[in-house]
Design a protein around this nucleic acid. Structure first.
Lengths: 250, 250
DNA sequence: ACCTGAACACCGTTCAAGT
DNA sequence: ACCTGAACACCGTTCAAGT
């Protein structure tokens, strides 16, 4: 019996199979209840084989995180390509991050968990590198929009802030909103918080602070965004509706 | 032998003792390496006694999180009482959150970990309630500053945003910056990110977006804040210096 | 060369026995 | 009434044995 040497393709397919099965498992049980035993049981491979692909549980989780990033990159790219002014597209891109979070709650939660200390340390070099690459792609979509705004004279970067800093600040603000409002009970004090509305407010505040033209009171961004959403993310919007969610920004 | 009935005071003292010992342990080993066995070994009580105070590991972590919040409330309150314009004090308050994060890295990381799904579900009702109370106090300091700005006609809330929403948006933006820049390698693309500088930029962007007077180009906030820090947080600044950190906002 | 799953070490939690 | 720590169930990881 000559043992077959596995080609790269079938190895990759098996790895993806494990990743997909784990995501399905997370969907059913929640990230906090995933054990390697359960993963192995849900998959037609043995423990040893699973551990051949992932050096540990954290490594598997990081692989799922990378999967999530490719979904985000797709959404961001589509938002960035929309035919509208730069400020509009940046907003659309930021809303698409929320769409991702709502449409893929398991992925979102897994990424949240992967952010806890020392997952990177416990993951394989290969996977960490892959993550860096994806992060670069994500940043690229943001850069593109800002550069376009600069070209069209709609945005001048503040003194002492370069494009990287502006990108980072916009990203961090949106990240904060979604991170805080996503899991919690959506109520702060007495006012119920609606995440898409706060996202909309937050972005307008920052863009106005940057004097990014046209300003919030010069254009009906609410209306413009609702139609942009319909054009760029029709399928996603339908899925949201099926989940009983519709985006209203006021 | 009549068994002594423990009074509330010594019960509380023992609980605090366990909390403090666990924090010290986290400082030494990192949150990710804490086990209940190690906690019990570090403390003059048995496993059963520790479990009498905390219904589980998550409950103990949440107790540590609440401890962290009391530290934050102290810093926020001091910042809010500073003699300066409201925008200045809000900024000072937000910087004090960063001071907390840098001065108490173990607490900060423990809180980050406690944010992962289902810790609240696994914690005692008592501890969750306590957390809500502390959160209210925190919010109070923010509200106070904004109300003062309104009284002094320096800030008018945007249409369709109430004080709660404005507070939340400011908080979320600062949260995002610190969460993203704290643990990571402080480099995004090519530009090295300096957390206090980005915090300063972010706040100016949002406050300018709110048209919060005086605007960023009407006042040297950088200078004003550096002296405010020296006045309100002299001890903390010294500790930061001992850690090799000095705050520069440009 | 590749796969398997029993075995191991470790960790959170409980509870019968003790004072 | 209160405390103790042995015992239990479970989980991540390894590796000797098998094909």
């Amino acid at each position: 019996m000559t043992p077959r040497i596995l080609d790269e393709h079938s190895l990759k397919a098996r790895e993806q199979d494990i990743i997909d099965s784990t995501i399905a498992l997370i969907e059913k049980l929640g990230v906090e209840n995933i054990t390697m035993d359960k993963v192995v049981a849900a998959v037609p491979y043995s423990k040893g084989t699973v551990y051949k692909h992932f050096i540990g549980k954290e490594d598997l989780f990081l692989a799922i995180g990378n999967q999530a990033m490719t979904i985000m990159i797709d959404l961001f790219t589509r938002a960035a390509q929309y035919q509208g002014c730069a400020r509009e597209r940046m907003m659309l891109k930021n809303i698409s991050y929320l769409i991702y979070a709502i449409l893929h709650p398991s992925l979102f939660k897994t990424v949240q968990c992967s952010k806890s200390p020392n997952v990177y340390g416990k993951s394989s070099e290969k996977r960490v590198q892959e993550q860096g690459l994806l992060e670069g792609k994500l940043l690229g979509t943001i850069f593109g929009i800002i550069e376009d705004a600069q070209d069209k004279q709609q945005l001048t970067l503040p003194k002492h802030m370069d494009i990287m800093q502006v990108s980072f600040n916009i990203w961090a603000a949106n990240y904060g909103i979604i991170e805080l409002l996503y899991s919690e009970d959506n109520v702060c004090g007495n006012t119920p918080m609606v995440v898409e509305r706060e996202l909309f407010n937050q972005n307008n505040l920052i863009f106005d602070g940057l004097k990014w033209q046209p300003l919030a009171d010069e254009k009906n961004y609410q209306q413009v965004l609702e139609s942009a959403l319909k054009e760029v993310f029709p399928g996603e919007l339908a899925l949201l509706k099926a989940k009983g969610r519709e985006f209203k920004f006021s």
